[in-house]
Design a protein around this nucleic acid. Structure first.
Length: 808
RNA sequence: GCCUGGGUGGCGGAACUGGCAGACGCACCGGACUUAAAAUCCGGAGCCCCGCAAGGGGCGUACGGGUUCGAUUCCCGUCCCAGGCACCA
């Protein structure tokens, strides 16, 4: 700050101990809150509980930027508000600390993931501290802590015992050069991000979780949740329930052998329109059905698809496929139709084969046009099928005994007929697939299973032996066989079978990062419990009342967490089956960087704004307030580098205003002031309740009121609270209530329109009847100018708002 | 291609259930204070047109229609931007 002999009188006043100096007051109050345990949630507190949860972060090396800040400030503001409302608030924080960046650092720089992670956590914690949030650090959890992942493993063992965890061969993205499986996000344009080699597929024996068993419950549970409709829609589409039928066709190979070929269809009513069949290229029957004449083509196609499958393909890709040389018999009419393979049929959905009805399916239509296959209309429609497939409902035609039936009835009739002949059955299908739970990586929870090849097969580690600790390794590099680095530690791998005592081997796959984050919200309730995942006392905190985080987790994380909770409910660990009653999605902060466009902040785009500098210059409270002011919380907002100066100026004004008026507050205030005060409280309360924080901050400029602004600028409020002669902490106060009597005005300004155009305003008594407004309006020359010589044909009056006169 | 959001001044963004569009802030302009600057305080402003001025008029919420006394808000169509998903039978 400026000082010295050149200081003016006014500067001197700024420099006095009344000046707003956040650098001095903010650390003081943070320390006060901590040493007085004000943010710790007590189990035995008699107040009603409120659990406000932030999505816990992955502690990355690059630290927080102002975009991250936004997602922590809103829930903190809300938590403080709930505290002032008299709730016993649990607002915890922790670390989702397993994950590949730490492992990559280990490979590239030789830093032990545990060491690197610990260092990042410390930096994150320091930065989070500057937010001034009321986190209860006594409940901090860390997914990489053995005391924590003991329970991550325990849940897996329970799932295994319940038949929800199983092993199967699944294709993974495989880089032939790195000799390792890689995640989808590390495949860029079909190539390995690290070495640029073309990625292919490799079948690996993988652990799977049977999430599909919960598909219906995951779908139905959505109905009772207070979540954004957008997220519910995304989850609904992801689960993708569709009703239809499985129908068995008879496939005849070139050598005359017959194989049942099952297909799934949502339109059994179009069965008579099937003119060919398509199998996924990976379908197990493909080799058996392919004729010698077609073998070369088929093999070549299958090979191409292996490479193409996960490549980002352009929007309007052309259909491809080849004929297998085999035919199938349609069960409804015995007709012989050709069997093709094509990549537009996916092995992972339905049965991996379809009957193609080009007249009534867009994709089949396109395919049939390209390869000159027959298109047969079986549902009548006005538009016909000359230009495109007709996919709507209509009357069945060319359909044997079913001709003339409306398609929706026909659907059921055909299924009944198929069932009676044992040729098919009504079936519900889901897009949702089982969850690939294996990772061939080091930095994750070891899957607690022992392979006993002599007697017992797959044996879970006894619960009393948990956790299976992650051992130190010499090398973090992949083994090249597709196994995790753990496979190289022989004295860790080799164990005795807990069942029969014979030599056996540990599972060397680890769990995905999702594992630890699927249940962490439960652990905050009793983070130190030794003998149970959650204590009886801890259960009282649950479920989470409000969950705040980015919309990018709308599907996977939230679905997995719901699945885990349902399972834990089923085995009696918790007594509810939906973990998050209310969900709020933050928008992200965009900023102009090198590209010249406003984009999401990231180091590579060079558009990151560091909060540390802003906190130093303007204080934490200014940044908090600007983060809330910047725009509607659920929408993205663009960062304005100078915007924070506005809130800083406001806080300075409010600071001096408060100190100037101190001591004069108890004088009986005039009604004018009471109205201002009650309106402010009403506004802030109502807008907080609907999360419209950005519009509240604007209304403060009317008049600052310490308790009402405390959730937004806690240090500021706390400091002034004390300076105005009160005992800290302000957060022990009650949220103020407003009185309707003071939120109404004696007079109102009514807008007067003529033919829908604003021509003036009149001030009348509140609740005034139409006649008195009209009377006032017809006395106002600025309005009567538009009425002269014309007749009022119609009057529309909305009380206290508007009078519209239609003249002509 | 499909799904989901979104498009309002120079900029970020307000506007409760259809009722005074542009709150609040940034940037800008003018004034006060200052030797000067910064800071602070007061005032101004959507755009276009007429007028010396006081003032007056027109147009305006991506674009084109519609419903209505009245539309940023509701309906139909088009364009653009962002995010997500990849042919789900």
């Amino acid at each position: 700050m400026i000082s010295g002999p050149g200081m003016t009188k006014y500067n001197h006043w700024i420099m006095s101990d009344e000046s707003y100096n956040p650098a001095e007051t903010e650390p003081k109050w943070r320390e006060y809150w901590i040493s007085n345990h004000l943010h710790e949630a007590r189990d035995d507190d008699p107040r009603p509980k409120y659990y406000c949860l932030d999505m816990f972060p992955y502690p990355s090396g690059s630290g927080l930027h102002v975009g991250h800040w936004r997602s922590y400030v809103l829930p903190d503001c809300w938590s403080r508000y709930k505290r002032l409302q008299g709730f016993n608030v649990l607002h915890p924080m922790g670390w989702d600390a397993f994950g590949s960046p730490a492992e990559n650092d280990a490979i590239q720089k030789g830093i032990h993931p545990r060491v690197g992670t610990q260092r990042n956590i410390e930096n994150f914690k320091r930065q989070l501290h500057e937010i001034g949030a009321m986190y209860d650090w006594s409940r901090e959890v860390n997914t990489t802590d053995p005391d924590y992942y003991k329970w991550t493993q325990w849940i897996f063992v329970k799932m295994f015992k319940a038949g929800l965890a199983y092993k199967t061969y699944m294709p993974v993205n495989w880089c032939p050069s790195c000799k390792t499986g890689i995640a989808n996000e590390d495949v860029v344009n079909g190539r390995c991000e690290r070495c640029g080699t073309e990625v292919t597929k490799k079948e690996l024996n993988q652990w799977m979780l049977r999430i599909t068993k919960y598909a219906d419950r995951l779908l139905e549970g959505l109905q009772k949740l207070d979540w954004p409709e957008k997220v519910k829609t995304m989850q609904t589409n992801w689960i993708g329930r569709s009703e239809g039928a499985v129908v068995t066709f008879t496939a005849i190979a070139a050598d005359g052998t017959e194989h049942p070929l099952k297909i799934f269809t949502t339109r059994p009513d179009t069965l008579f329109g099937a003119t060919y069949m398509v199998m996924a290229p990976e379908h197990p029957l493909v080799p058996e059905l392919t004729s010698p004449a077609q073998a070369r083509n088929v093999q070549a196609y299958v090979e191409t698809v292996k490479h193409e499958k996960d490549i980002d393909r352009a929007a309007n890709i052309e259909k491809t496929g080849v004929f297998t040389g085999a035919y199938a018999l349609n069960p409804v009419n015995g007709e012989k139709i050709p069997i093709w393979i094509a990549d537009y049929v996916l092995m992972a959905y339905g049965t991996g084969a379809i009957m193609a009805v080009p007249a009534h399916d867009e994709r089949d239509y396109e395919f049939a046009k390209k390869f000159g296959l027959e298109i047969r209309e079986v549902i009548s429609s006005k538009q016909g099928i000359d230009k495109e497939a007709f996919i709507g409902e209509g009357t069945m035609i060319n359909s044997g005994q079913f001709t003339g039936t409306p398609s929706d009835e026909g659907r059921k009739a055909i299924v009944r007929w198929l069932e009676s002949k044992e040729l098919g059955s009504a079936t519900v299908n889901y897009k949702l697939r089982d969850w690939v739970f294996s990772r061939q990586r080091y930095w994750g929870e070891p899957i607690p299973i022992i392979h006993c090849s002599i007697n017992c097969g797959l044996v879970p580690v006894p619960e009393s032996d948990l956790p299976v600790q992650l051992p130190d390794v010499e090398r973090y590099q992949p083994t090249g066989t597709g196994e995790s680095p753990l496979a190289a530690i022989k004295d860790w791998v080799n164990v005795k079978c807990p069942n029969c005592g014979n030599p056996a081997e540990r599972e060397t796959d680890t769990m995905p990062q999702w594992a630890g984050s699927s249940w962490y919200f439960l652990r905050y309730a009793s983070p130190k419990a030794k003998d149970a995942l959650i204590t009886e006392k801890g259960k009282e905190w649950l479920p989470v009342d409000l969950y705040v985080g980015g919309v990018e987790h709308a599907i996977l994380h939230l679905l997995y967490a719901r699945f885990y909770t349902m399972f834990l409910h089923d085995i009696g660990v918790v007594d509810f089956d939906e973990p998050f009653e209310r969900l709020f999605n933050q928008g992200m902060i965009t900023h102009v960087g090198k590209s010249g466009k406003a984009e999401k902040m990231s180091k590579s785009k060079g558009n990151v704004v560091n909060p540390d500098d802003l906190v130093r210059q303007f204080g934490c409270d200014s940044l908090r307030m600007y983060e809330l002011f910047v725009g509607q919380p659920e929408l993205d907002a663009e960062w304005n580098d100078h915007g924070i100066e506005g809130v800083y100026r406001f806080l300075k004004r409010a600071w001096h205003w408060t100190l100037m008026h101190n001591g004069r507050w108890n004088a009986s205030p005039p009604r004018e002031m009471l109205v201002q005060r009650h309106l402010l409280i009403k506004n802030v309360t109502e807008r907080l309740e609907t999360f419209r924080m950005n519009t509240i901050v604007s209304s403060f400029t009317v008049e600052a009121f310490l308790v009402a602004i405390a959730p937004f600028v806690p240090h500021f409020a706390e400091e002034l609270w004390q300076r105005t002669g009160h005992q800290p902490s302000i957060f022990l106060q009650k949220w103020p209530k407003w009185d309707e009597a003071y939120t109404t005005f004696d007079t109102v300004t009514v807008a007067v329109q003529v033919n829908g155009k604003l021509r003036g305003t009149v001030v009348v008594k509140a609740e005034a009847p139409e006649e008195s407004v009209l009377e006032a309006a017809t006395k106002d020359p600025t309005i009567t100018r538009f009425l002269d010589g014309k007749q009022i044909r119609k009057k529309v009056y909305v009380k206290n708002r508007i009078l519209n006169l239609v003249v002509g």
